[in-house]
Amino acid sequence: MDHTLPQPYSAPPEGHVSHSRLERVLRSGRFAITAELNPPDSADPADVYEAARPLGEVADAINATDASGANCHMSSIGISALLTRAGYSPVYQISCRDRNRIAIQGDVLGAAAMGVSNVLCLTGDGVGVGDQPGAKPVFDFDSLSLLRTIKTMRDERRFLSGRTIKNPPQLFLGAAENPCIPPYDWRPERLAKKVEAGAEYIQTNYIYDVPLFEKFMARVRDLGLDKKVYILAGVGPLASARAARWMRSNVPGIHVPDAVIDRMEKAEKPGQEGKKICIELIQQMREISGVSGVHVMAYRKEHEVSEIIRESGILASRKR
């Protein structure tokens, strides 16, 4: 893994912007694996490490979500700091929903000082879908102005105010994309805009509709974006047909085609079937030109992640 931290400040390797393992894997052309950690509702570090263990076995980086779905859990910066201490490489997710530019720019420096080397810039779900819908939505930045801001901090060594940063944060910059929801035609254009804003890698939302994703990727290749940004396709095991339907109607931005739900419905062991679908998806993603890795989001099924990755066979094709 990266290194056990805090480490003294030092320059990143030649041709790299950070000390990130994920960046090294992607730049060397290996198929990357990232996985999402289910953040605990607890102040005990042991709960974080327990959640990280099954992911750390196979993942190049572990995503620490920032109150996803507008539900409150342990903060992404807290989880990220704990993970670096144990030698894991976290992806520090930053949502624009809860903090303004003053807080975020400060947190970016703090996270980098704690050994974080990957960030993922997100807009964030609206507060209305979460467990505290009365909260004040901030959205001072959007994901693109946030990307450009962190890029400015890193490359120009200054805050948006113009004040100089002595030692800039060395961060590998990521953003999200959601290829399977409207406006379909503009999604690749929006990806181009994210690259323009500073994104160096992309983690997509769940993809269950492979033909739709392939159409998106064809356009991405036409625009030459696959040469400019590393794309990690989002996958995850479904628990049951009922859970899939619930996700589709209650979680913003999730598209599950009827065919997949049908297949779950007909399965004798839905849990096994969900896993099987996920493995097949990973294998399909591996074959799509321009896809540089997978991002596994196994909500409440973190223990299955290493098995899913091993059974998919993607590890065999790369030297670790």
């Binding site: 807009t123 609206g126 959007d142 929801i181 409207p182 406006p183 503009w186 598209h255």
Partner: peptide, 29 residues
């Protein structure tokens, strides 16, 4: 509702409707 200045978020509903105000078309679409 998120006052985004650079494009649609990832929560746009089928038919191009807003995540936060489902009765409204996505401003960015």
């Amino acid at each position: 509702p998120k006052q985004l200045r650079n494009g649609p978020c990832g929560g746009v509903r089928p038919g191009g409707f807003c995540e936060v105000k489902p009765e409204m078309k996505c401003v960015w679409a």
